[in-house]
Every structure is written in structure tokens, then in C-alpha cells.
């Protein structure tokens, strides 16, 4: 059974010059699957990811997350789904500069409010440990290397044990070695913990490690290259 399912998703911008960012996209993603979205610059990869991640609302079409139709939810309900079921990793780490690494990782748990202070710190440390950055927990983001920051960002995305991880060019800003490590981590997350991982990438090596590739051109899926 699919964890994420889109049917005829369309995202249009109405303005002086109307633009169609995402054009009639249908797809299904299973739990434990590692999927890459590829395509030329401007083809709508990020736009699709924002729709799948409930950050943006489709102009038309249907979207199911964990067997719930989320197409008609309001802003706060969408925020709750993001908090509980989704985790994001971006090209830039987007860690909060004034918080320590551990505080950054525990932030979503604090907002969810299901764990005690001790419990959530323990969980935060465990996540950092699983990503090999436990020794950095009391540093501030600016004291870390790019690869370390991206691993902390992944730890934060995992904070509330999401069903789906959405990553937008997670290795776009990293050197080859760090990129390879992040790629390995995302792959393991899908295959070992059963999360669905959807990653946008330009990197063919990264894409080659995915279970499946979705090729976008002009906001549409190109079935021949997918």
C-alpha cells in the first residue's frame, strides 16, 4: 500500500503571465522506497516536492498521505501533518544559528510535545549518534562542516519519526565524500527503517542508487526516461 499518492496534481500560478509549475502529475510512493526526482533546471522538481510535502497547495488534483486525503485540509491541519508525518532536508541546512545542534534536533519534538525533556534529549542524542555526529551535539551550527550540518539536518528531519523524508538537492552543496555519505544515509533510511524517501537531485551517481527515478520535463513526468 502506498504511503504517498498523487492524482493529476496541477500547480498553476495565476498572474500577468500564468505559469504551470506542475502539470498533471500522478504518482505513488511505497513505504521503504527510495525515489529520486530528476530533470533539468526549472522543470518543476522543487515545486512538486513542495506539493508532496504539504508546503504548497495544488491548484487541482488529489493527494493522499498515509491513506488520508489531504487535498482539502486547512493550513493548521497541514502543519500538523508535516509535524507528525513528514521530514524535510534542503540543499542548505537551515539549522537555527542560535540553537545548539542538539536543540535544533529536538525542536520538532518540543513542538509536538509528546516526550519529556529527558526523553527527547535522549532521542536527539540517539539520532545524532546514528548519523555519526553525536560528538557535535553541544556545538553551534556555524562550528560544523557542511557535511556535518547536513547530517544534523537529517537528524532533525527524523525527530518525530516521520513516514516520509523529502529532500531537495540534499547533496547539492557538499563535496563528493560528504555527498556520498548523505546518499548512503538516505538509502539506508528507506531500506532499513521503512521510511519513504523522495529526493530531488541533479547528481546521476546519487540517482543511480535510488530504487526508482522520476524524470520531470516542463512540469510533466517523462515516462520514457523514468
Amino acid at each position: 500500500m502506498s504511503i504517498l499518492k498523487a492524482e493529476n496534481l496541477v500547480r498553476r500560478l495565476v498572474g500577468e503571465i500564468p505559469v504551470t509549475l506542475v502539470d498533471d502529475i500522478s504518482l505513488e510512493i511505497q513505504a521503504g522506497e527510495f525515489v529520486c526526482i530528476m530533470g533539468p533546471s526549472g522543470s518543476g522538481k522543487s515545486s512538486l516536492l513542495y506539493l508532496l510535502g504539504l508546503l504548497d497547495v495544488a491548484s487541482s488534483g488529489q493527494l493522499w498521505l498515509d491513506n488520508e486525503n489531504v487535498s482539502r485540509l486547512n493550513e493548521d491541519q497541514l502543519a500538523n501533518r508535516r509535524l507528525e508525518k513528514l521530514g524535510f532536508v534542503f540543499q542548505f541546512h537551515f539549522l537555527l544559528a542560535e540553537f545548539t545542534v542538539l536543540a535544533n534536533v529536538t525542536l520538532p519534538m518540543r513542538r509536538l510535545g509528546r516526550l519529556s525533556e529527558t526523553k527527547l534529549n535522549q532521542r536527539g542524542m540517539a539520532l545524532l549518534d546514528s548519523l555519526g555526529v553525536a560528538d557535535q551535539s553541544h556545538k553551534y551550527p556555524h562550528q560544523l562542516s557542511g557535511g556535518q550540518r547536513q547530517r544534523v539536518a537529517i537528524a532533525r528531519a527524523l525527530a518525530n519519526d516521520p513516514l516520509v523524508i523529502l529532500a531537495d538537492e540534499p547533496t547539492g552543496n557538499l563535496d563528493t565524500a560528504s555527498g556520498a555519505l548523505v546518499q548512503q544515509i538516505l538509502r539506508d533510511l528507506a531500506h532499513q527503517t521503512g521510511k519513504a524517501v523522495v529526493a530531488v537531485t541533479h547528481d546521476p551517481v546519487f540517482a543511480s542508487s535510488a530504487d526508482r527515478r522520476i524524470m520531470l520535463i516542463d512540469g510533466k513526468i517523462n515516462p520514457d526516461l523514468s
Binding site: E75, D76, A79, L83, F88, F94, L96, L107, R111, N160
Partner: peptide, 16 residues
Amino acid sequence: TRDIAILKSMGFHAND
């Protein structure tokens, strides 16, 4: 603004 955006993407409500 970036921090606010990231907090919202994490699931913080406008009210938070």
C-alpha cells in the same frame, strides 16, 4: 525570515 520558514515547514502553526 528563513528561520520562520523552516519552523513552518517543520510544522509550526502561524499562531506559534
